[in-house]
Simulated assay, not measured.
Amino acid sequence: MGRRVQDVRVAVVTGASAGVGRATARLLAQRGIEIALLARGRVGLDAVAEEVRAAGSRALPIEVDMADHEQVVAAGRRIMAEFGPVDLWINDAFSSVFAPFQETRPEEFRRAMEVSYLGYVHGTRVALSQMVPRDRGTIVQVGSALAYRGIPLQAAYCGAKHAIVGFTESLRCELLHERSNVRVTMVHLPALNTPQFDWLLSRLPRHAQPVPPIYEPVVAARAIVGAADRPGRREYWVGMSTVLTILGNRVAPGLLDRYLARTGYKSQQTARPADHDRPNNLWQPLDGPGGHDYGARGEFTGRSHSRSPQAWLSRHRRLTAAGLAAAAAGTAAWRRR
């Protein structure tokens, strides 16, 4: 089995400067884990590092573009030198484009894939270089309901998340073949209230938004830490919307095609006109020197859920199964009366 989070000494979180990565780093810091924080934006990195230290843990913020393999390798060497070998690596960094596919330029699509897919590949490779020789460690790939169901206006993101699933499944088979104790698991998330809607490149006519129901980043963070605690499972689904999306696509993908063609454009946009002159973070971080600290939450807090009962039940399947069995036995006994 992989090491439980409370036994982990050194963790890495990519995309740590904002959103889900920021929320996850905060939770790990409460466990006293030394955390290497990887992201492009200096302002966000410095801010999350201070949060980690305030919680009583050591922080190592490293500016790195996950699309650049050599930068990731260099970050891995620095982590090893300053903290020691990595026990837990969480891949979360991404960038993307909100636009119809035919309005997404080839170089933009390539860049989104390099960050959001190859960034996971590079991070996983560096993690394995430190875990395999010790025959222990856990890698958590942060995925999405859109890893199994593509939606309009997010072809680059959906393509990257689909690719991560295929890559991770292939790697898991190889580790099993080698009888390795290194564990790899995935956490598939619902729509989240993160800053991505304020900094991703968008060509939509109105301001982008997550498809409701919307959850706060801490819901994702709890699931990620829970998955790291129990890495023997292949994957975790967070939020009932994720469950329904994945299962619905297995049963009736054609029906979902038509439903999303009809509703997918409106549901991803607010009523506010988009500002097409605002800067975006596809090529350069917006929280670089002199920039803004975006934090973990986005602008949709008033519409977001801070808890997901389904996610809790997913992490505690044995307890849930026992409760259901007890309820069924009680019902049967009552009927016999």
Results as ranks from 00 to 15, higher is better:
1 M>R: 08
10 V>W: 09
14 T>G: 12
18 A>W: 13
20 V>L: 03
35 I>F: 03
37 L>E: 08
40 R>A: 07
43 V>M: 10
49 A>P: 06
53 R>K: 07
55 A>Q: 04
55 A>T: 00
57 S>G: 11
57 S>Q: 09
63 E>S: 09
65 D>F: 06
67 A>Q: 08
71 Q>G: 05
71 Q>Y: 11
72 V>Q: 05
76 G>Y: 02
77 R>M: 03
81 A>Y: 15
81 A>Q: 12
81 A>T: 10
82 E>L: 14
84 G>K: 05
95 S>K: 09
97 V>D: 02
98 F>G: 09
99 A>I: 06
106 P>T: 11
107 E>T: 09
108 E>K: 00
110 R>V: 07
110 R>Y: 15
111 R>Q: 05
116 S>D: 01
120 Y>M: 15
121 V>S: 14
123 G>C: 14
124 T>M: 07
126 V>D: 02
126 V>H: 00
127 A>G: 10
128 L>P: 00
141 Q>C: 08
144 S>C: 03
144 S>L: 10
144 S>A: 11
145 A>R: 07
150 G>Y: 04
152 P>T: 12
152 P>C: 13
153 L>W: 06
154 Q>C: 11
156 A>Q: 00
157 Y>I: 01
157 Y>M: 09
159 G>M: 04
160 A>S: 09
165 V>Y: 09
166 G>F: 11
166 G>W: 13
167 F>W: 12
169 E>L: 01
169 E>V: 12
169 E>Y: 09
170 S>I: 11
175 L>V: 04
175 L>F: 06
178 E>L: 14
180 S>T: 11
180 S>A: 13
183 R>L: 15
194 T>D: 09
197 F>K: 05
200 L>D: 01
207 H>V: 08
207 H>E: 12
207 H>N: 10
212 P>R: 04
212 P>T: 04
220 A>W: 06
222 R>Y: 11
222 R>P: 08
225 V>P: 02
230 R>T: 13
237 W>Y: 12
237 W>K: 08
238 V>M: 04
243 V>H: 12
247 L>F: 15
253 P>W: 02
259 Y>M: 15
264 G>Y: 05
272 R>F: 06
274 A>E: 12
274 A>H: 05
277 D>A: 15
277 D>H: 14
278 R>T: 14
281 N>T: 02
284 Q>S: 05
290 G>K: 00
292 H>A: 10
295 G>N: 04
295 G>H: 07
299 E>A: 12
300 F>M: 01
300 F>L: 00
302 G>Q: 11
303 R>V: 03
308 S>W: 03
308 S>R: 01
309 P>K: 06
313 L>M: 14
314 S>F: 12
318 R>C: 10
320 T>C: 15
322 A>M: 10
323 G>F: 15
325 A>Q: 11
333 A>N: 13
